[in-house]
Amino acid sequence: MHEMGIVLHLAKTLDETAVEEKITKIGKVTLQVGEVSGIMTDLFTDAWDYFKGRHPVLSESTLVIEPIKAVTWCDGCKKEYETVLYGKTCPYCGSGETWLVRGNECVIKEIEAECEEPDSE
């Protein structure tokens, strides 16, 4: 259910960007979503399609989600392994002294935008 909350914040973040950059319309919104971010991408896209209508600048936008594989680093044997397969325990040496390197993020990579002023190019 927290997808709804995150979608609200995404809309607000993009609204603020639109004001700063004088954007009139946002097209494709590319998100990078980590495997262990806890975000269900189907739910997230549905929530987005529902909420974008409330923001004129976002009403025609589409979400593109790029998944990011989760990777954990082991302090014990200094190796990386796939988080989803082995969790907190290192498959090489059995150590629990392990840290997530990436995979819990949810980042706005880029947006397609139409601006008030014509491009200088």
Binding site: I6, H9, L10, K12, T13, E16, T17, E21, I23, K25, G27, L31, E105, C106, V107, I108, K109, E110, I111, E112, A113, E114, C115, D119
Partner: peptide, 15 residues
């Protein structure tokens, strides 16, 4: 349309 790179967390406005 032009592409704007944001590289910002989704909840940036909340942060």
């Amino acid at each position: 349309m032009k592409i704007i790179e944001l590289k910002e967390t989704v909840t940036a406005s909340n942060d």
